[in-house]
């Protein structure tokens, strides 16, 4: 099936197999490997991207379902070589160790901060319920998002 979508501001058209998952489309067809494949069962959130501004798990979405829509991946956040405040926050607050969950954390936090400008710690933790991190214990991730909230 032919799909057409805007990925990080760029209009794309591709011929894909009907059963191709969005995460594999992004990584293997569009060449955007910043979105990670984690649990593949909709639990870990490593594959989180924005679909029309809302965080979704791209392992639980078909590429054909996203046709006609607007997608943003972690590669689409930095503008003119300048990191997005969320990326800066993860850097400054040591919000990652191995980095595997980071793109998904950042994209979920992006949705959260678009709904509430200054979430409390509890609201941040609730917003990240769909994202797992096996390294940090989450404390620095929460701080990274608070850092970004102050600058957005």
């Amino acid at each position: 099936m032919r799909v057409s979508m805007i990925v990080n501001g760029e209009q794309r058209q591709d011929e894909v197999e009907d059963r191709l998952l969005l995460v594999h489309y992004l990584r293997e067809v569009a060449g955007l490997t910043g979105t990670h494949v984690g649990c593949e069962s909709s639990l870990c959130g490593a594959c989180t991207v924005l679909l029309d501004g809302r965080a979704v798990k791209s392992c639980t979405l078909l590429a054909v379902q996203a046709s006609g829509r607007r997608l943003v991946t972690v590669e689409g956040l930095a503008q003119n070589g300048r990191l997005h405040p969320l990326q800066e926050g993860f850097w400054e607050e040591h919000g990652l160790q191995c980095g595997f969950c980071t793109p998904g954390m950042i994209m979920a936090a992006h949705d959260l901060l678009s709904r509430m400008k200054h979430p409390s710690e509890a609201e941040i933790r609730r917003g990240l319920e769909g994202n797992l991190c096996r390294c940090t214990g989450y404390q620095h991730i929460v701080k990274a998002i608070e850092y970004a909230a102050q600058r957005l």
């Binding site: 959130g45 989180t48 965080a55 639980t60 979920a108 949705d111 994202n131």
Partner: peptide
């Protein structure tokens, strides 16, 4: 229900 991402879809 579920989490933020699941509730969005």
């Amino acid at each position: 229900i579920g989490d933020l991402q699941v509730r969005n879809m």
